[in-house]
Amino acid sequence: MNAIECKNLTKTFQSEEKGKQGEVIAAVDNISFAVEEKGIYALLGRNGAGKTTLLNMLCTKYIPNEGEVLLFGEPAYENEKQLKNICFMSDDMPAFDGFKVKKILAYAKAFYESFDHELCRRLLTLYEVKEETLYSALSKGRQTALSMIIGLCSNCGIVLFDEIYSGLDAVARQQFYEILMEQQEKNPRTYILSTHLIEEMSGLFTDVIIIDSGKLILTSSMEDLRSKAFKCTGREEAGEILSGKNILDIKRMGPMAQYLVYDELSVEDKEKLLFNHVTVEAMTLQELFVAVTGRVMEE
């Protein structure tokens, strides 16, 4: 079953940029994808790609100009049952300002019916978040930790984390990954994690969604990705073997070249490459991300 399905989602805003005031820009432009239940999805995109806008539409905080969101097969908009089953947390929660941690947690516990009190106590201690402290008086790291705690303890079928780990130090991030993996084994949920920390998080993901300038670039399971994203390094002319393949980028180094290929390679292809002294490696998620979203600097 799909936890989330979005069809042709579009969200436009009026530009506030100087000289372009009032111009309509699509922050999210006709995006469709499905999220399988119990997956951990990476949502990747450069700054301003539309990740936050997209996540806000999934939990109906933003209403799309066009398109539709289904949560567990039901239309999301004004669907109380499904909206109690989705938790969206970002590192910037203006709604928490002016409240003590205790009060924020009380709201969360009241809203999310199967809130995990036990885990919450454990995590508050671990991250040293004191219940009597005002949210605005917490350090950036602890504010972030609070968002993370609520997301993990909400026990919602779907949890969306918008870039919350960036405010955490390396130790706190490692603890978060461990808790997430532990929870996923005990009590699997569907997660979408938007992040720039691709390298350190890539092992956590089951699937990936990449967007750029509001458009969907690719969506794939991590397993499929590893069987169709390759780095082929050898003499430049050996690249002829790859003609007809989907080549994302070519880096030249003297007489050599590295081809970044996003395509299936047959056993014969691989043998031919090997015979021509071309080394074939798997592309890492970060390398793929840079290749599909990086723009070439003009000289």
């Binding site: 951990i40 490692q174 990954y177 461990e178 808790i179 993996m181 532990e182 996923q184 084994e185 005990k186 350190e200 998080m201 092992g203 956590l204 993901f205 089951t206 991590m222």
Partner: peptide, 14 residues
Amino acid sequence: STNQLAAMYRINPA
């Protein structure tokens, strides 16, 4: 356990 392994090496338990 796969859980220990997943947590320690930051890989998906599945």
